[in-house]
Write a protein that binds this DNA or RNA. Structure first.
Lengths: 226, 226
DNA sequence: TCGGACACGATTGTCCGACAATTAAGTGAA
DNA sequence: TTCACTTAATTGTCGGACAATCGTGTCCGA
């Protein structure tokens, strides 16, 4: 028998999980999707795990339809695998998968770099460095989640330097893949929080040269190192 | 009052819309999603159009839940815009959006080209050329759909030359964006079916040189021309 | 005449319960 | 062990239901 992943109270916590947003309406489906996504990323729900709709619905105290919609959404981002008729499973990513995901991001960010206002404005530079520095203080196994948030924020800031909305959008739609790839990496202990910080600072340096080529090279290395 | 977009018979046609696949089980949701996607791509449902769940459900003779799931899926690919509370609308793409989408694909395919087995095998070359040639015979305004299918097939074949599954996957998850961008282009009359064929043949030539750099350059031009 | 408060209808977000179809698992026989 | 079969679990889809919310048009007061 599988162990319960969502045992505790549900609705109460859910309602405020990531809610302190400005004023954007968050639907229940969003909250459920976020919740499950988090469990997957953190590894509470390990790869291959069968996600049974009814069970999730009960554990989270929502209707099956709501869970279903959330799962559909996760499936579209690639975190969950749908096999018509036989259910949804947490997707498994091999090492080479992870390497490739890195490439996808290198490709997209590299492309964006071509359009970026380089070098970044002083304000942007500061912001980027600040984010990188924040990574330094993290205790690794526990703060994975925070590290990922910072990572997303960093690369997001880097990409938002320029108004290429579609690139940013494509990037965002694949973003949770990035999150998945980070977890095993962290586990493997490949990077301490310090090295993460350093690696990102290198990127800032590359960007500050004002040479798109250098930033692109930097990005490639950044992702290959993982 | 809006004109009906899905007036004719529904279920019967739906069942076999794109079904001649090997043996993959297609759910009703898939069929509905395909159907709506097609209408959007073909322009029957113009940008900004409000997609009312109940209405679609009735027109297609399926339940609202099914439509909802289909819409969710389309939204995740970017074709449909969700605004919690106020409904789903067909997404509008500006010219610059379209240009950017082209860039995304150039980036991904270019990246894939780095890993491709270049030059393609004789078999692959033949297949690519065949596809390109098939474009030649099309009557344009009417055969848009077929042209798009060929285009997808071409680029898909090009990318499948190598086993970089994640790149391919990222590409696929964005594929319908590619489809949307082609329609206005066709309408604008930018390319006759002949020029389409020629442009793709140029890509084959580039690939056959065995030089990844040349293929990448080719891809960039390919998308920029649009 | 114009801006704003209000009421109303349309639509969405979510829930429930139900049922056939399909899949996965367990059982027994060869 | 392996194969065929029965059984239980799960999915795919349906219909209806209801509150919350949104968009819109109406009426009122300035």
């Amino acid at each position: 028998m599988e162990s319960k992943a969502f045992s505790e109270q549900a609705k109460t916590t859910l309602a405020r999980t990531l809610a302190p947003r400005v004023a954007e309406r968050t639907t229940l489906v969003d909250q459920v999707a976020n919740r499950i996504r988090r469990e997957i990323i953190l590894g509470t729900l390990d790869p291959g795990r069968h996600l049974v709709e009814k069970r999730l619905a009960e554990d989270l105290s929502v209707s099956r339809g709501t869970v279903r919609e959330a799962l559909t959404r996760l499936a579209s981002t690639g975190l969950v695998e749908f096999s018509p008729g036989s259910g949804n499973r947490v997707r498994y990513f091999s090492d080479s998968d992870i390497a490739e995901i890195g490439e996808v991001f290198a490709a997209l960010e590299g492309r964006a770099a071509l359009h970026a206002v380089l070098p970044p404005s002083p304000a942007a530079e500061k912001e980027l460095r600040d984010i990188a520095e924040q990574m330094r203080g993290l205790r690794l196994p526990d703060d994975v989640e925070e590290l990922m948030r910072l990572d997303r924020e960093f690369h997001g800031t880097l990409m938002n330097q320029q108004p290429k909305t579609k690139l940013v959008e494509a990037w965002q739609s694949l973003e949770s893949l990035l999150a998945v790839m980070m977890v095993p990496i962290m586990r493997r202990g490949v990077g301490t929080s310090d090295s993460q910080a350093d690696r990102h600072l290198l990127l800032v340096d590359a960007a500050m040269t004002g040479e798109p080529e250098l930033l692109i090279k930097g990005l490639e290395q950044h992702y290959y190192q993982m």
